[in-house]
Design a protein around this nucleic acid. Sequence first.
RNA 1: GGCAGGUUGCCCGAGUGGCCAAAGGGAGCGGUCUGUAAAACCGUCGGCUUCGCCUACGUAGGUUCGAACCCUACACCUGCCA
Length: 419
Amino acid sequence: MNAVLDELTWRGLIANSTDPEALAAHLDAGPVTFYVGFDPTAPSIHMGNLVQLMVVRALQRAGHRPLLLVGGSTGLIGDPKETSERLLNPRDVVAQWVERIRAQVSRFVSFEGENAARVVNNYDWTEPLSTIDFLRDVGKHFPVNRMLGREVVANRLESGISYTEFSYVLLQSLDYRHLFRTYGCTLETGGSDQWGNITAGVELIRRSDGAHVHALATPLLTKADGTKFGKTESGTVWLDPEMTSPYAFHQFFLNAEDAKVIDYLKVFSERPREEIEQLAELTRTEPHRRAAQRALADDVTDLVHSVEEREAAVAAASAIFGRGELRELAPRALDGVVAELGRHEVAAVALPSVVDALVLSGVVPSKSAARRAIEEGGAYVNNEKVTDPERMLSSGDLLPGGHVLVRRGRRTVGALTAV
RNA sequence: GGCAGGUUGCCCGAGUGGCCAAAGGGAGCGGUCUGUAAAACCGUCGGCUUCGCCUACGUAGGUUCGAACCCUACACCUGCCA
């Protein structure tokens, strides 16, 4: 067995592969050029995409050469979803997203050395292609009867599927063939939900070029209850710091369940096996320390954001959740906490009620919910429980810098700043 | 095209003239316990100027002192027959 494949297997990153032995031999034989695609369906990539990037990093570390494909053309078409037809995004919007995603994914690979990464955009070879050439050189290799049997398509026959989405698989297959012919790419990786699209490319290359190429798919990450990992109450966990703050990002991983934290650590942390096994042991023997959760949150935040952002997130969290007295915090640390939570200004001369403060800081959705929180004993000002629903904030509540921290429950925190 | 049934809060689902902001379950949220985990238990779960008022039971009208509940039209969905 090949060393990288071994590692990926141990990390739980392999759900499917075409002919594992042949792939192992191929990887052993020398540097392999491989590719993974990212479609611009949003202005940022998310945690699911990060899993793919972790695979890419592992392969590049092992000496293989990554091609990161940004789907400038496939993003204009849309991969068929299980449930319903996608809305087409405007061309200029997709073009914008292509640029943002290109910049995001580039941070995860090395562009130095023998096996330097390369970023490609399928728009470059799809856009100039004529319909006649497409139908003759690609379409001819796709039996419709087989396409109809694919799970996604079969599921959509009742609810309906447009010709556009039906054809998506041809474009992705064409990508693989183009990269095979142009760069000698012989491996495509992706999520297991992409398996059908990936193997279709393998098949196309076999039919039209008579070559045997490979594929690898990662499993879908789940929570202990079987639901998808990567969503919070407020939605998807994005990599863009504007969309998911580094603090929220760090918190998301810190709150990983005991039952799953080691699985996540294997995927998102590049620590060696012994260290992860040690952390697994610590999770068993002294779970309250949450050593694995801390390692996970720190490692991923370091990788996706920066060491500075991670340190700021940890400092903010320890201020909010720590035992220390808020008033004794250094003013600078407090400013940092407020920045992480989002700054909301109020007039120092007319300080609001606690109810209004909870709403203004975004900690609760309505005044009714704010009152309820107080009645339930789940509302706090500067870490002190509030019991009077009529209570007003006063100048005595202001921390250095004019800040007030409000909290609902254990971990929903917001800040107001009096100016 | 004909016949029958349905459309209720985030989701499922009861309610057939006043006692309905609407039973029950799930999800969510808060509390207790803990470790900013999980489970369990208790509470909560439209909004507001909060002991009261406003908006809500597919859409638009109507009957009535009063309608989620009755009538009319429309839209959509589901069965059965052609």
